[in-house]
Design a protein around this nucleic acid. Structure first.
Lengths: 350, 350
DNA sequence: TTGTAAGCGTTATCAC
DNA sequence: GTGATAACGCTTACAA
């Protein structure tokens, strides 16, 4: 009873292919895994049988023999949905045609059990590797944990956080400086800044960019014009109330992300302050919100999709036969996007 | 050489547990899988050994033996990042502590190869089940494909799309009618409507709700006040330009989602039209944008996170020992959220 | 260059 | 109730 295919799934197995091609299963296995030590004739013969039978290697079986799942995991604790989803798109673009699956695992960095949770997850799922999004990408313990578990990782951040194989970065500092310079070029001298949450590398980088830019223009750094936000809309509103109460108020405000910039704008509009005539605002991220509010926000576009793709390629390139082993870049450049929320300061201002 | 644990991972295996407890591996397996035909004493003994050794069942091996991966897949072609991410959160809440992983797979419904892509993915990954988000949840071919592949599925939609085990729905029609009634109660008689894209069940349901409400108020349906949008911001802007050009213009506009409502608002503000004094606007979704624009948008909150959790529970309840088999609901109710974008129409209007 | 035998860690079968 | 033994489909020694 030479039944082809396993009884359960109806799918042909490696044995069926071996029988059909008249070779051993190991030879078929070699073809599947792109082993170089095979006659072209054998390879062709086996490939033909694979084709003819419509054979699809069973990933569970491979995973068992391999000791790893054909899965990469996106670990994140990022509150920005658009960022996470764009990053996912980038990853999926990179792994598009392969056998790899993308799993998503949000974690809670405020939980003391975070590391244990991650460890448990890695032990259970045994993924090929993990991708770490900020802010947890900044956590060195997680990177160490991955290494200990034999799981590859790539960290994504606003600055270079690791060596080239384990890191993809954006140039936040430079871009915020560029944005700030555009404000200075427009004539602004009194520029407010809304900081990101303490302990975030991105927050630090962006603030440094701001300080670099005003310092090089010879503007004195005024602590009263810096507000401590937390990347949320609400804190942007709080920043607006605080900064607009300063006398004289700043003529422009730079926010460390779009969400806070939107909060700023909300408060300004609520008070009848004309943006950009009476107040210029710049955000960071180029989230959909930035272009969906009126006036459309000037901002810095973070190449998050491209970063996702790059990070995923770094993660899996050793597993994919086709991938060239050429050096992949570490830093991807952001771009400053000018829209409608910036204008020269009003001369009539007291 | 009684080495405990496999050489490769250092993790103890079922054999180690069996040896430690002095039982066969099958008995250990029975404990793991919650088999009822076991002495309490045996069960306790084995559990103790599992505890002592820190044994974690290898999911790859289980997957091979089971013929399925411990994975559920979110299949979607939804452009709204927040919706997708909230839904993910709901799913993860449901599968929180289990061995299950959540994989994400965006598909392209405009591609003729979509079904083949999905089939290939399901063949390769053999997930326990898939969760279908609108708009592809409305595609019956996908549901059939899942059944054919022996993959469970649950569809999520704006209306009941399948039987109770395979469906989670929201009451969009009712809620849009309620929103519209609030407009009518405020005194509006000339109400514009921005439709969602053709072929979307959600678009149909929401429009029906609108028509129900104006009909019951005895308002004549005026095709000139209905604009065909596509759920994107741009089409909301187009709708604004078109609807505001009607003479006399509507005093209120209902949009089928927040993004289009934001487009509407953008055009109004750009033209110096006061919202809500001169124009009331209502959206749908309760996306972050709705509360981050000024004035904050009245909208309908879609319980997307709860739907994700419910859908995931329906999908996996047969696999989880603890889950009670009680009937889970099909429909989850949305809520109308009143914010600042609605006011009575101006009496001075010509 | 190819094949054989022995796993990988679990579950299913079918006796006892 | 419990336990040998044979799958599950593939990979990795090691041999030929």
């Amino acid at each position: 009873m030479a039944m082809i295919g396993s009884a359960e799934t109806g799918q042909p197995t490696i044995n069926d292919v071996a029988a059909h091609a008249g070779v051993s299963k190991k030879t078929v296995s070699r073809v599947i895994n792109g082993s170089p030590l095979l006659t072209d004739a054998t390879r062709a013969k086996v490939k033909q049988s694979i084709e003819a039978l419509g054979f699809v290697p069973n990933p569970q079986a491979r995973a068992l023999a391999f000791g790893r799942n054909f899965m990469i995991v996106l670990l994140h604790d990022n509150p920005n949905a658009q960022t996470v989803l764009n990053f996912q798109s980038g990853i999926l673009q990179a792994i598009g045609n392969t056998d790899l699956a993308l799993a998503v695992r949000p974690v809670d960095r405020s939980s003391p059990a975070m590391l244990d949770d991650i460890r448990e997850f890695l032990e259970k799922q045994r993924p090929l590797g993990v991708l770490l999004l900020p802010p947890i990408s900044e956590n060195d313990d997680i990177a160490r944990l991955c290494t200990a578990q034999g799981v590859r990782y790539v960290r994504v951040g606003s600055a270079v956080l690791d060596d080239a194989d384990h890191c993809v970065a954006s140039n936040d500092r430079e871009m915020v400086a560029a944005a700030c310079r555009s404000l200075i070029a427009a004539g602004h001298r009194s520029i407010g800044f809304v900081r990101g949450p303490a302990g975030f590398r991105s927050a630090l980088e962006r603030e440094t960019g701001f300080r670099d830019a005003i310092a090089e223009a010879g503007i004195r750094h005024d602590p009263a014009l810096v507000f401590q936000g937390n990347y949320r809309f609400r804190s942007g509103q709080d920043a607006g109330r605080a900064l607009l109460a300063v006398t004289p108020p700043p003529t422009a405000i730079l926010a460390s992300n779009d969400e806070m910039a939107a909060g700023l704008l909300y408060v300004a509009l609520e008070r009848g302050i004309k943006v950009p005539q009476e107040l210029s605002i710049i955000g960071f991220d180029d989230s959909p919100t930035a272009s969906h509010i009126w006036p459309a926000l000037s901002t810095v576009r973070w190449p998050i999709l491209e970063m996702g793709e790059l990070a995923a390629r770094k993660l899996v390139r050793d597993f994919l036969p086709g991938e060239d082993k050429a050096d992949l870049p570490v830093t991807l450049n952001s771009t400053f996007i000018e829209r409608d929320s910036v204008a020269p300061p009003q001369p009539s201002r007291t």
